[in-house]
C-alpha cells in the first residue's frame, strides 16, 4: 500500500496533475501570505516585549507562550464565528474564501513567531544591552541591529511558522470549507481523500506535503549550519 502511494505521488507530480498543482499553489499562497502578515506583527511584538521593561511583562510573555499552543480547531471556530455572515464581520463576506484561511493561520502562527522572536531577542538584548548603553546607541538603531544580528535565528523562526501554517488542517477546514477549486489546500484535500477511503491518493498528497516539509527543514538546517560556521548562533 505505501509503495503504491509513493508511485501515485510521483505519478501525480510527473504528469503535472493540474488539480494537484492548483491545490499545492493555493496552500503555498495562503501560508506565505499568512506568514508575511504574522512576521509583520510577530517581529515587532516579540522585539518590543524583549527590549522594553514594563509592569506586566511576565504576564505578557506567559500569555504569548500559552497562545503558541492554541489548538487549530479552536482558532478555526473563533474565526468562523467572527466571519460568519451573522457574526460581527459577516458583512465582509470572507467566510469560505482563501482570505478567511489566511486570517485563521495568522491567528495561529503570529503567537508562535512573536514568542520565538521574543526568546531570540531577549537573549540578544541581555548580551548587547550594556554595550549599547555604553556606546549610546539609540533605540531605532538598536532594534535594527537586533533584527540583523538575530537574522539566522529569525529565519529559523519564520520557517517554523511556515511549517506550522502549511501543515495545519483543523482551522482552514472550518473557515475555508474545503471548496474544490476555491479553498481546497493540501491538508484539507488529504482529509477529504481519507474520508472518501481513497487512502492511496491521500497518502500520495501526504508525500507531496512531506516533501515540502523536508525542503523547509532542509533550509532550517542549512541556515543553522551557516550560522554555526560563522559563530552567529
Amino acid at each position: 500500500m505505501p509503495d503504491s502511494a509513493f508511485l501515485e505521488a510521483f505519478g501525480l507530480i510527473a504528469t503535472a496533475n493540474a488539480d494537484l498543482y492548483e491545490i499545492l499553489w493555493l496552500s503555498v499562497q495562503v501560508s506565505i501570505t499568512a506568514l508575511l502578515i504574522s512576521v509583520f506583527l510577530g517581529f515587532p511584538i516579540g522585539t518590543t516585549l524583549a527590549i522594553l521593561d514594563f509592569r506586566g511583562k511576565n504576564l505578557c510573555t506567559t500569555l504569548l507562550n500559552a497562545l503558541m499552543g492554541l489548538p487549530p480547531v479552536v482558532v478555526g471556530l473563533l474565526v468562523y464565528l467572527a466571519l460568519s455572515r451573522s457574526g460581527p464581520f459577516g458583512v465582509l463576506g470572507l467566510l469560505y474564501t482563501p482570505t478567511a484561511m489566511v486570517i485563521a493561520q495568522v491567528v495561529l502562527i503570529t503567537p508562535i513567531i512573536a514568542a520565538l522572536t521574543y526568546q531570540v531577542m531577549d537573549d540578544l538584548h541581555r548580551e548587547y544591552r550594556e554595550l549599547f548603553l555604553s556606546l549610546n546607541i539609540q533605540l531605532p538603531k538598536a532594534i535594527s541591529t537586533y533584527l540583523w544580528d538575530a537574522r539566522y535565528s529569525l529565519i529559523t523562526t519564520v520557517l517554523a511558522g511556515f511549517g506550522r501554517a502549511i501543515s495545519e488542517v483543523g482551522a482552514v477546514m472550518i473557515v475555508g470549507g474545503n471548496i474544490d477549486h476555491l479553498t481546497r489546500v493540501m491538508t484539507t484535500a488529504i482529509a477529504l481523500e481519507t474520508s472518501k477511503g481513497e487512502l492511496a491518493i491521500a497518502l500520495a498528497l501526504g508525500v507531496v506535503l512531506l516533501t515540502l516539509a523536508l525542503i523547509v527543514n532542509g533550509l532550517v538546517t542549512a541556515v543553522r549550519t551557516r550560522a554555526r560556521k560563522y559563530g552567529y548562533t
Partner: peptide, 14 residues
C-alpha cells in the same frame, strides 16, 4: 512582486 503574486489571486476570488 511577491505581494502582488500572492494577494491579487486571493482577492480576485472574492
Amino acid at each position: 512582486t511577491i505581494s502582488i503574486a500572492l494577494f491579487i489571486p486571493l482577492g480576485s476570488t472574492l
